[in-house]
Design a protein around this nucleic acid. Structure first.
Length: 358
DNA sequence: AAATCGTGGCG
DNA sequence: TCGCCAAGATT
C-alpha cells in the first residue's frame, strides 16, 4: 500500500461521517441480511443528490419498506408519492423494477457480483461497484464525481471529463487496496470536506504532499470540464381546476420529464409563449406564473384557475391526451399528494390567490 | 454518444 | 443573484 493510501485511511479513521447506510471504518460488514438492501437504496437515492437531501427519504423508505421484498410488493403509486420531491423520478420507477427483479430472479437477495448487479434496472457502472464494495466487501473500482475530482487533482489530469475516465480508472486500479469499501468512502468524505469543488482546503489535506494540483496556483482548476450549454427558457400553463373543494390531478406518462408522477394538468412546454387552449370551457382566471429550474432548461409556468359548481365529465381530449388516472384531491390534501416540486409551487400560488379554498 | 432527467444549497 | 454542483443511468 502506498503511503498516499495510508495517509487517506488514517485520516478517514478519525474523520469518517456516520451515515445510516455506512459501516464504520475498519469494522466488519454487518451480517444483517437486509444490509445490501439498505446500501442499494441509499446508492440509488444518492445518485446526483446530496447526503442532506437523502437522509429523510432514506429513513422514511426503510421504515415503511424494511426489506427488498416489502418494497417489491408495494403499490407503484405509493412509491412514487414517497419519492416526490427527491427528483430524477426515473430512479423511483427503476427502484421498483429492480426490487421486483431481485425477488423474482435472485430469490430476494441482491447478487454480490458487480456484473450481475450491473444488469439490474437503475444500477450502472458506479452503483454496481459501490454495492459490491459497500454491501459485500468485494474489491471494486468505485468512481463517482467525488473520486474523479480527487484523482484528477492528485495527478493533475488535464484531459476533460468524461474523456479522462480511463486514466482515472487506471490510477485507481493502482491505488485501491484490498478494503475497497473504506478506501472509496474515505475518498468521498475527503472530497466533501477538504477536496471540495471550490476553495479546496489543501493546507489541511492528508494527500497534499502527493498532490500535483496542491502545488499549482489554483487546485480548483481540476477536474477539467467541457463548457456547459446555455439553458433555454420554456413556457407552459398548468390548470388548477376546483370543484366541490377538490382539485383535478392526473398522472403523467411514464416516460419523460416527471414521468409517472401525480401532477396538475398542464399544457406542453415550448420555447415561445404559447396560448394553450384551456382543457375545459369556463371563466378562467390567470393567477400569474412560477419559475422552476430544471437541469437543462428554465420553466416559466403560468397558472390558470377555474372553479366549477360540480365535477365535469372529462374526455381524453380534454387533458392533452393525458387523461391518465385522473383523480380529484381535497384541497387540503394537495401538499401531501406526492406532487413534484414544480407543481407544489403552482399549488402554493393557486391557494394564495384563492383563499376560499385554503 | 450527446441529450435527457430534479432539486436545493452554496459561494 | 445565479451559475455550479451532488454517491449517474439511460437511450
Amino acid at each position: 500500500m502506498t503511503h498516499t493510501v495510508s495517509n487517506l485511511l488514517n485520516w478517514y479513521r478519525g474523520n469518517a461521517r456516520a451515515l445510516p447506510w455506512r459501516n464504520p471504518p475498519g469494522e466488519a460488514l454487518p451480517t444483517d441480511p437486509d444490509w445490501p438492501y439498505r446500501v442499494w437504496l441509499s446508492e440509488i437515492m444518492l445518485q446526483q443528490t446530496t447526503v442532506a437531501a437523502v437522509k429523510a427519504y432514506f429513513a422514511a423508505f426503510t421504515a415503511r419498506w424494511p426489506t427488498v421484498a416489502a418494497l417489491a410488493a408495494a403499490d407503484d403509486a405509493d412509491v412514487m408519492q414517497a419519492w416526490a420531491g427527491l427528483g430524477y423520478y426515473a430512479r423511483a420507477r427503476n427502484l421498483l423494477a429492480c426490487a421486483r427483479a431481485v425477488v423474482a430472479d435472485h430469490g430476494g437477495r441482491f447478487p454480490s457480483d458487480e456484473d450481475a448487479l450491473r444488469t439490474l434496472p437503475g444500477i450502472g457502472p458506479y452503483t454496481s461497484a459501490a454495492i459490491a464494495a459497500f454491501a459485500f466487501g468485494r474489491h471494486a473500482i468505485v468512481i463517482d464525481g467525488n473520486v474523479e475530482r480527487v484523482v484528477t487533482r492528485l495527478d493533475a489530469i488535464d484531459t476533460p471529463l468524461p474523456a479522462a475516465r480511463p486514466q482515472i480508472r487506471g490510477a485507481l486500479e493502482t491505488l485501491t487496496p484490498q478494503n475497497a469499501s473504506d478506501f472509496a468512502q474515505a475518498l468521498m468524505d475527503l472530497a466533501t470536506s477538504i477536496c471540495t469543488p471550490r476553495n479546496p482546503r489543501c493546507l489541511i489535506c492528508p494527500l497534499s504532499p502527493d498532490c500535483r494540483a496542491a502545488r499549482s496556483p489554483n487546485p480548483a482548476d481540476w477536474p477539467r470540464k467541457a463548457p456547459k450549454r446555455p439553458r433555454p427558457t420554456r413556457r407552459g400553463t398548468a390548470w388548477w381546476i376546483e370543484a366541490q373543494g377538490q382539485i383535478l390531478t392526473i398522472v403523467r406518462p411514464a416516460k419523460g420529464l416527471l414521468g409517472g408522477m401525480r401532477a396538475l394538468p398542464s399544457s406542453d412546454w415550448h420555447d415561445t409563449e404559447p396560448a394553450p387552449a384551456p382543457p375545459l370551457p369556463g371563466n378562467w382566471q390567470n393567477l400569474g406564473a412560477i419559475s422552476h429550474g430544471f437541469t437543462h432548461f428554465e420553466l416559466i409556468l403560468s397558472v390558470h384557475a377555474l372553479s366549477l359548481p360540480q365535477k365535469p365529465q372529462l374526455a381524453r381530449a380534454d387533458l392533452s391526451g393525458a387523461l391518465l388516472e385522473a383523480a380529484w384531491v381535497n384541497v387540503e390534501d394537495i401538499p401531501g399528494a406526492g406532487l413534484p416540486t414544480l407543481f407544489k409551487k403552482a399549488a402554493v400560488l393557486a391557494r394564495a390567490h384563492l383563499p376560499e379554498a385554503a
